[in-house]
Write a protein that binds this DNA or RNA. Structure first.
Length: 478
DNA sequence: AGTGTATTCGC
DNA sequence: CGAATACAC
């Protein structure tokens, strides 16, 4: 008997670990380790945990139909895994354990300890790079070193991609009868989406509204319909429309990617299939998937990143973080008095999801204007996001704080009002999340007047002063 | 994946 | 005098 250990790879197709176990010809059982104390330490959000559980139930039903039992080990922390899995392997008489790698350091330590424990029992434990399109270590500079800058990485990544066939692995489990297929809600589902790359996984089907209703679909039928619909109908306009939060022009597949209900490789396959020529290679949406790959490759090449150390410590040494709990609290609650920041935070609090353009705006606001340590923002995002993904979130926050690989220069400070006017020109997004502002003319919503506040708080900082203070601090003039 | 300010251009 | 451009931060 062989075991497949499912983690954030809750899928049947394009799953190398499941594929290998089934290919052995032996009986197969599936395993999950429930480690709520560890998830809490990782600030994993309730929304993400609920999505993972729902998808697990879907997966369990499919596995059962193929006579694959799902075994749940109720543990607390990753450190409990080696002993519990060893005991299980002995009880079940398993000959091998298969799993797909996860790249944060705690996960890698967990997996190494499990491998060593099983090795001592004479049981084979095998890992696979099922989470990535191109495996870590496969994209290197001419000197054989890892890339630290995105643009050359992406060129080398594409070149490496084209050297191999990256067709997704088929599901080793026969398709089920359509009876348990989720039905897609008409019209809304495919268009409400968003994807995240800077800060999170990348893709979901239903955006904001659905998250609030716990209505992100978890069946393959629904997820693949969403992916197909996005690539066919929205991806062509993705570059033009993605930065406007009110347009719902992103894929919204990030929660599914983050828990591995969909793989990046499956996304790529659908994108390629939609093109008869090579133009898919220029897709801006593909570029977002490459960001996801980049941040995972970095995490493998520079394991210390997992300890929340700045990628470039010399940059962070020049920053004095302010430990102002009042300002941090205002940011968390969406009560800063800056409409675009507050609307974005309200969207996050209400739905567990935030448009990526807005993630950049609120992260710049927190790190540059409030000068709150980026690690506080990183942890808060993880605690709220339904698509919380350690590598992407970490990469996004370090990019925003200008401490990361290929980060924004420190002086790149977003002006919240200009960003609002540029990316929500008609004030529609503001009106959706700050209903008090609906009484204002669209153009006036970006900056409520000095006297009348229309039910919104006064700005907690003076933008010009805060911007100058950040620059002065960084330049050593403080 | 930016902003602020000075300078120049064009009417 | 607004738009385009240049450049510093």
């Amino acid at each position: 008997m062989q075991l497949v250990w499912f983690r954030n790879d809750l899928r049947l197709a394009d799953n190398p670990a499941l594929h290998a176990a089934c290919a052995s010809g032996e009986a197969v059982k599936a395993l999950v380790c429930l480690t709520p104390a560890q998830w809490a330490e990782h600030h994993e959000s309730p929304a993400r945990q609920a999505l993972w559980q729902r998808r697990l139930e879907w997966l369990e039903a499919r596995l059962q139909a193929a006579d694959i039992e799902l075994i749940r080990l109720n543990l607390q922390r990753f450190a409990d895994c080696p002993a519990a899995i060893t005991r299980l392997v002995q009880e079940q008489g398993a000959s091998a354990l298969h799993f797909n790698y996860e790249y944060p350091l705690n996960e890698r330590h967990r997996d190494r300890a499990v491998c060593e424990a099983l090795d001592a029992e004479g049981v084979t434990a095998l890992g696979y790079h099922g989470d990535l399109i191109v495996a870590p270590g496969q994209v290197l500079t001419g000197q054989g070193t890892p890339f630290k800058v995105f643009t050359p990485f992406s060129k080398a990544w594409l070149k490496r991609l084209l050297q191999d066939d990256h067709a997704p692995l088929p599901s080793p489990i026969k398709a089920e009868a359509a009876s348990c297929a989720e039905t897609l809600q008409p019209s809304e589902s495919a268009s409400e989406a968003g994807e995240q790359v800077g800060f999170s996984g990348t893709v979901s089907c239903v955006g904001a509204r659905a998250a609030r209703d716990a209505a992100y679909p978890v069946s393959d039928e629904a997820l693949h319909a969403c992916l197909q619909a996005f690539v066919r109908e929205q991806e062509p306009d993705y570059q033009r429309l993605r930065d406007f939060p009110s347009r719902h022009a992103t894929s919204g597949l990030s929660p599914a990617l983050t828990i591995g209900a969909l793989s990046a490789r499956q996304c790529l396959a659908v994108l390629k299939a939609a093109h008869e020529d090579d133009r898919w290679q220029q897709s801006t949406w593909l570029n977002e998937l490459v960001w996801r790959e980049f941040y995972r490759h970095l995490l493998v090449a520079f394991p210390e990143l997992s300890r929340l150390t700045p990628f470039r410590p010399e940059t962070e040494a020049r920053i004095t973080w302010q430990d102002n709990e009042r300002l941090f609290e205002a940011w968390k609650q969406g009560e800063t008095g800056f409409p675009i920041v507050d609307a974005a935070m309200k969207q996050l609090l209400a739905t567990g999801w935030m448009h990526n353009r807005l993630r950049m705006i609120v992260a710049s606001f927190l790190t540059k204007l409030l000068r709150v340590d980026w690690r506080k923002g990183e942890a808060f995002f993880m605690s709220q996001l339904i698509d919380g993904d350690f590598a992407s979130n970490l990469g996004g926050w370090q990019w925003s704080a200008s401490t990361g690989a290929d980060a924004a220069p420190y002086f790149r400070i977003f002006n919240p009002q200009l960003q609002s006017e540029r990316f929500d020109p008609n004030g529609e997004f503001l009106a959706e999340w700050l209903p008090e502002l609906r009484q204002l003319e669209p153009k006036a919503r970006h900056k409520p007047g000095a006297g009348q506040r229309y039910g919104r708080p006064a700005p907690i900082i003076d933008y010009k002063q805060a911007r100058q203070a950040a620059l002065d601090d960084y330049n050593g003039e403080a």
